[in-house]
Amino acid sequence: MASDKVIHVSDSEFDSKVVKNDLPCLVDFWAPWCGPCKAIGPVIDDLAAEFDGRVQIAKMNVDDNPATPGKFGIRAIPTLILFKDGEVVDQITGAVGKAQLNELINKAV
């Protein structure tokens, strides 16, 4: 069940939808060939519903969008980076549980 609260962003949209977003933004860098990325999918959807209106949850497919992951030195997925006012607040790599992601997001709200 994919949530409509989660936006999908591309390299060209990253600036407008993440960097210039008024809300803190959690970006999930993923790819279709990555099992653990699929594993955390339902958790990301849940978080998007819970933080609706307070935090923007976004996903970026690293296969289709190599520039942004390169810029942030991403060499493992899933990597989740929390942005606030365009700056990196913190990041997590690996298929972590909901509690850890909650903790991450709460650093920006």
């Binding site: 060939w33 990555c34 099992g35 653990p36 991403i74 060499r75 493992a76 997925i77 899933p78």
Partner: peptide, 8 residues
């Protein structure tokens, strides 16, 4: 996880 990160 080689499956996850190999392509990088």
């Amino acid at each position: 996880c080689a499956t996850c990160d190999g392509p990088f």
